[in-house]
Design a binder for these strands. Structure first.
Lengths: 210, 210
DNA sequence: GGGCGTGTCCCCCTTTTATGGGATTGACAG
DNA sequence: CTGTCAATCCCATAAAAGGGGGACACGCCC
């Protein structure tokens, strides 16, 4: 940390006051360099190409183009640039949309300034800082849900079948791949439906991948 | 943070020196209470029932039963108890197995003592602390793969349909939920199949959730 | 203004699934 | 040794999904 490299930053935040506050924060702190701060992300690609930031601080609710859309474009065109979302939204939809769009970190706006600076450095150094509540959601999204427990009732052969179905195979293909008859596959599927209380392949798969 | 409640902790760590160090750390710090520290997790369920910890600090490589297995049991039987993994392993297998087993946080052993205490409190307060490298992996595991790119050819309405199908809905239900006719749903589905080069709902879903 | 994509709807026919009813074998538990 | 369960196969019928063909209106782009 002694010879911490300079981290180049751009900011996208439509609230002028907050944008100014963030800009000043970054400007007055050693180890950080503000390359630009904007009220919308309509020209995010050109600006990124020109300003060459290491880390982009991105709000979500921006006029014209959402920060999520901007993140998606950025992540496509400049995979080496890390996007750190800074927003008031903490609902699952926004959070996971942003992550899927390629965000590297996700902070809520109530994050104290010092923590924001830490997070920028953490992103730069290969981390993925998240506000605690966000981290918990992300973690939970990887936990198998209680409905997964029902899967434990399935026999190993039934699981084989379900697994292949979940990969998009038809009954015929499942039968071929497992080396059993089509009727046998049907039988397993009926038992799977009974055990999982569903009535179609798609429902069963939805349970399987819940 | 002024009137921070006491957090009750149990520790599972086979290295006696480290176990002692962690025990002392927790014991001498205000706001934390050590309820027990053990070299294996064979009796984790009984110990948890008796000692009533809020947070369990769990190593992975333990004699007799792995910390991941213990986490699984703990998470099943005491869903209110949070497990914080503290280990040297940072390979994907261990990390995701632990998370799927129900771990709430995942720290690498090189984490400084102060950060460990912070992490325990963060877990207790609803967060999910992870070492930066772990957070990045978790984040990346949620990023869509390149095969997802085909999905961008779909119109928004087509995506609506696919999304509902992926949740296990039948054509009828999709039509009902979107307030459109069954025939319209069929048309969308045919177009989806063309664009994704598939021939069944299950295949389309497999692509969708690749 | 003519194409192209999208959103909406319709008909007909074939294939696949869903659901009901069976059957046999072998393993394992009580 | 009797019951249960997993694993395998079979038949029949009804419902759903797949695949082909259209149709029409709207908006956008060149």
């Amino acid at each position: 940390m002694l010879a911490a490299p300079l981290i180049r930053i751009t900011i996208y935040e439509d609230n002028a006051l907050l944008r100014e506050a963030l800009s000043v924060l970054v400007q007055v702190t050693d180890g950080y360099e503000l390359r630009g701060a904007f009220g919308d992300c309509l020209a995010v690609e050109a600006q990124t190409a020109e300003l060459q930031p290491d880390v982009v601080l991105m709000d979500i609710d921006l006029p014209g183009m959402s920060g999520i859309e901007a993140t998606l474009r950025l992540h496509r065109q400049f995979p080496a640039v890390d996007v750190l979302i800074l927003t008031v939204f903490d609902d699952d939809g926004q959070v996971f949309d942003a992550i899927r769009a390629g965000a590297t970190g996700y902070l809520l706006k109530r994050t104290p300034p010092g923590r924001i600076l830490d997070a920028i450095r953490e992103v730069y150094e290969g981390g993925a800082p998240m506000s605690p509540a966000i981290a918990r959601r992300v973690m939970q999204s990887l936990h198998p849900t209680s409905s997964m427990r029902e899967l434990e009732q399935l026999s190993s052969r039934e699981l084989d079948v379900l697994k292949l179905l979940a990969q998009g195979r038809s009954y015929k293909l499942v039968a071929a791949e497992l080396g059993i008859g089509l009727e046998t596959v049907r039988t397993y599927i009926r038992r799977i439906y009974e055990k999982l209380h569903v009535h179609s392949v798609t429902e069963a798969i939805a349970r399987y991948r819940a």
